[in-house]
Design a protein around this nucleic acid. Structure first.
Lengths: 357, 357
DNA sequence: ATATTCTACGAAAACGTTTTCGTGTTGACA
DNA sequence: TGTCAACACGAAAACGTTTTCGTAGAATAT
């Protein structure tokens, strides 16, 4: 077992100084042709690669991005990660992943752990518990320490940073309008509790679309699921709620659900109750994941383009990191010009499949 | 914007030496009560936290695990990550994620990038291209550099390291036996090309189960899908292949598929062709993901317990890392005792749902 | 009063780099 | 022959820690 070789060892072996080796390897013309050749050959032979940690310490930057998300076994979030990783990799960054598990405390612990030098910046989506508590001090604290943050999807006005969001509102409007165009008269909404902003926005979009179409909203047609408990493992609860809902509103002929799972469950339940899809009831979901694609019938959904979100977020963050570099090098550290933050809105798109006409 | 405070700054501010500050913060009794108090108060006030990078450099360990997987938008792999992250976090480690995207080259690049000091050890699953080329030098190279590896799921005998695998063979046997018990007479297999070991093992399990049941295997009943091209985005190809398959073998009354997607697609196609599930054809898949749970009808599958795999892998790796520590501290560096590696087999379990009787 | 042991702290090395600055040697030039 | 620049390299600092060792002064023992 031969440990990685260091500059010092090369230096000793070749009987030159460490500085000479370093310079030779970076092709500095301070070093003679001969010595450079010799050193580079030796380095290649022993497969020398500079130690990242040492570089990080010296340069005070790690070339690493911290991702902090609520959950990873989740089509949308993993797609975002994939997007982040793609551009991060291309631009020479690594990606370190922390999971908040929707918990406020874990979010804080994870942030602090990573903020102590491990990463140059964060890309994150806020946990439900944090949204509920509305306590965002940890975000502002890290920003104040000079660590930039990019938030995506679940964002919040109280924190000043770059943001990448899905146009949830218009996505919902589009979806519901489509149902109206397809002759649905009684369009139901299956949504989450209001504190998750995306749920709220999609609900607002639903209402807006109805109003635009001259349809009066009927609160009986809105089903709010309390997903404070883990729905994935409480399918039964979800399904029985939907059964109740459909039974007490037999006139429903269109359903807009704020996520894939609700939509697919609704289809399943509806079919068990004897409805034909899309003939009796048309369904549109949100989030274009595996379920939508492979459900029977396959589900028409509003696609969020998770990968694009990830890519944009990463570009935004890295741009800012490297802009800071440039600024630091300028001696007029344009100090108090409160830099303004960017909010990128990713447009949604309706993917038509079999659950609509 | 106040950057994080360092020992040096505290030292200067309090007019003591850096060493004193360091010792005071670790409650060394070399330092007087008074000074300790004063320093700790000051440190807390300014929220001092030691810089991880500096610590990593000093201790020559990063407390970070590198995960290298082919794909992240994938139920099984993300579940494994969740498992890894859980125990890593509990045991004080971070997790850095690299995606090979099933590419040999990206796998190597990623490994080398991380092996230069960024991580203490790897947990990985081999990319398809690497399996195809059968070129494993990069794994052995990193191991030789003293960086331990734990492989999971897609493992290979040519590399000496800890491994965590699913009992693919027996999982398949169980599944097919179940179909036999459920009175299936003509059991089909939908599988991948042989170079992916898990596919091969599951195929062998299928054959074994048939033999045990006294049924002669019929090569017509085996459909091998070439997924060198990205199947996720080539659903049509997959489905038409299955259509052909079912049409030319109308006697099929049971299907065992080596993954969720194949199984669900088979169900979908079969139903379109007029078969009832599970009455006419019973289906069992492998990998208990979202699809299985939410398909209509829901799919009976062989669960791989991805999270458990992740947890085991992480524990194995961390155990080895910390054992090394201990060993280094002993002066009799029991050098040439070639340590033996562990192979953990995670048992599968059949999750019964609606696609079987 | 002298010798010895604590007590409480500081200096310096080490981890692996890069970079600034200094310096000895050579060659050119007047 | 003396001056100066160019060349080729080394020493040292710096990034932020921890830890080993040394030591001044105080306390104790003789």
């Amino acid at each position: 077992m031969k440990r990685k070789i260091t500059l010092k060892q090369i230096a000793k072996e070749l009987d030159v100084s460490v500085s000479t080796v370093s310079k030779a390897l970076s092709n500095s013309k301070e070093i003679s042709e001969d010595t450079t050749q010799k050193i580079q050959a030796f380095a290649k032979l022993y497969n020398y690669k500079p130690n990242n940690i040492a570089l990080s310490l010296k340069n005070r930057k790690t070339k690493t991005i911290g991702i902090l998300i609520p959950e990873i076994v989740h089509h949308f979030f993993s797609t975002v990660i994939r997007g982040i990783e793609r551009v991060a990799n291309r631009r020479g960054y690594n990606v370190i992943v922390g999971l908040s598990n929707e918990s406020f405390t874990k979010e804080i612990i994870n942030m602090e752990m990573l903020a102590n030098g491990s990463i140059d910046g964060f890309i994150l989506s806020i946990s439900k518990e944090t949204l509920l508590k509305q306590d965002y001090h940890h975000f502002n604290a890290t920003i104040n320490q000079g660590i930039p943050i990019v938030m995506f999807d679940r964002v919040v006005n109280e924190v000043d940073c770059d943001k990448v969001i899905v146009d949830d509102f218009n996505g919902a409007v589009k979806a519901v309008k489509r149902l109206v165009e397809n002759d649905c008269k009684n369009i139901a909404l299956i949504t989450t509790m209001d504190y998750v902003s995306v749920g709220r926005l999609r609900t607002q979009g639903y209402l807006e679309a109805l109003q635009l179409s001259g349809i009066e909203a009927d609160s009986n047609l809105i089903l709010k699921i309390d997903d404070s408990l883990d729905v994935e493992n409480n399918l039964d609860v979800l399904e029985t709620e939907i059964v109740q809902f459909l039974k007490s509103n037999p006139n429903i002929d269109g359903i807009f659900a704020v996520n894939e799972l609700y939509a697919v469950s609704a289809m399943k339940v509806a079919r068990k109750l004897g409805f034909k899809i899309p003939d009796d009831i048309q369904v549109i979901g949100f989030t274009d994941g595996v379920l939508s694609k492979h459900a029977t019938p396959s589900l028409t959904t509003v696609s969020q383009h998770g990968q694009k979100i990830g890519e944009q977020s990463a570009n935004l963050l890295i741009d800012r990191l490297e802009a800071e570099d440039a600024k630091t090098e300028q001696y007029f550290t344009n100090n108090e010009k409160k830099s303004d933050f960017i909010k990128v809105v990713i447009e949604t798109e309706i993917i038509e499949r079999e659950s609509t006409k």
